[in-house]
Design a protein around this nucleic acid. Sequence first.
DNA 1: GTTTTTCTGTAGCGAGCGATACACAAATCG
DNA 2: CGATTTGTGTATCGCTCGCTACAGAAAAAC
Lengths: 217, 217
Amino acid sequence: MATKETKQRGRPRSFDRETALEQAVRSFWEQGYEATSISDLTRAMGISAPSLYAAFGDKRALFDEVVAEYGRLYGGFISRAVAEEPTARRGVERALREAAAEYTAPGRPRGCLVISAALNISPASAEVAASLREMRRSNLREIASAVRADVAAGELPADTDADALADYVGAVIQGISQQARDGAERTALEAVVELAMRAWPEAAAESRSAAGARPAP
Amino acid sequence: MATKETKQRGRPRSFDRETALEQAVRSFWEQGYEATSISDLTRAMGISAPSLYAAFGDKRALFDEVVAEYGRLYGGFISRAVAEEPTARRGVERALREAAAEYTAPGRPRGCLVISAALNISPASAEVAASLREMRRSNLREIASAVRADVAAGELPADTDADALADYVGAVIQGISQQARDGAERTALEAVVELAMRAWPEAAAESRSAAGARPAP
DNA sequence: GTTTTTCTGTAGCGAGCGATACACAAATCG
DNA sequence: CGATTTGTGTATCGCTCGCTACAGAAAAAC
């Protein structure tokens, strides 16, 4: 699907589409959707406005591609951590630690694009905000699902409120992203993660034997 | 200072300045600094642009007044909670519970203006963002100070990292504000607060006798 | 070669932005 | 009363926004 089918017919594109997209990612990541103008984008991408519109459609379509690219390159670590670790606790702890690292990684914009790019949007761009919000909700559902699986496995107390726990994790992640944007250092955010994980419920003592085995959600 | 000195000389203002300011607070609270246009403001305040500029200066000066008014009417509860409660733990718990209530109060914009009004700002308005950031930092300093006082009083373990604990509380508050803006209900945020407080360090068992007495910072 | 297709650069569209010039209205002061 | 001071309404200003018309450039197809 992504490979060129045959030789293209007309004048070839004079810039690398992937490289330009990567610069668009950085621009939107730094300033958010509305605060990033077409002029900002053409400057960062090194192309003119008509080239941008020919290659990516309009600003909204470019942003959609940017979000997908961001997810592919930088944003998937939460889903990955929760899916790969054997317990919800370990998945969440890994996700939070990676968040502290990712959101302060040198040479990149701070924080999370999905969290911060569509804050304070004017009504005209409400759809963009709704789209990113749904992505965040999806992440929380994954976490809540992992928590429920741990409860079923006796890895967490039976009265654990999975949705509340997922909301809590989401609040901490959003807070970490925000503080990273405010200039917080990685070590400070790791200390926050350390504290945040102290709120994790303790497993009932007698049923910790089944650790590592988790039924599919 | 705020009272009229004598009878004013020229044509009197045809609108109530305080009421108009209150509408400006709502507009900036809902949409943030940059996403709120002068046109939005004049519509909400029920006055024309020249009247706005005559009464409040420019957009930036109006926003500064809005921030001050917001702090006076809605924003002081964190400082109040931390200052009035006898221990840092009780102060923070009260602050978080009040945040869950305030940020979802019916008939008001969701979340906290100081947290959300200057997110995703373009470089031209960087000063506005810096100003609100400094207010947030000031709140965290108050919390860290209360924590240090509790450590000195034996109310918290001697190895408690006051700055990290304050950063954690700040992250939770920002997360709660964000989720409130995303539509979370008060009860859901209260569950998040309940969980967040489980991370609070336990006092060393033998020195809890001095509860209620705290030396001034 | 000529034709066809596609991309690029210039230049500019209508709309909205923050902010204001200017004439008129409404009050106090003498 | 006239003079002075201050606020209001209309009608913009210069600027930037997202976006595009149009002509020319660069490739394949014939």
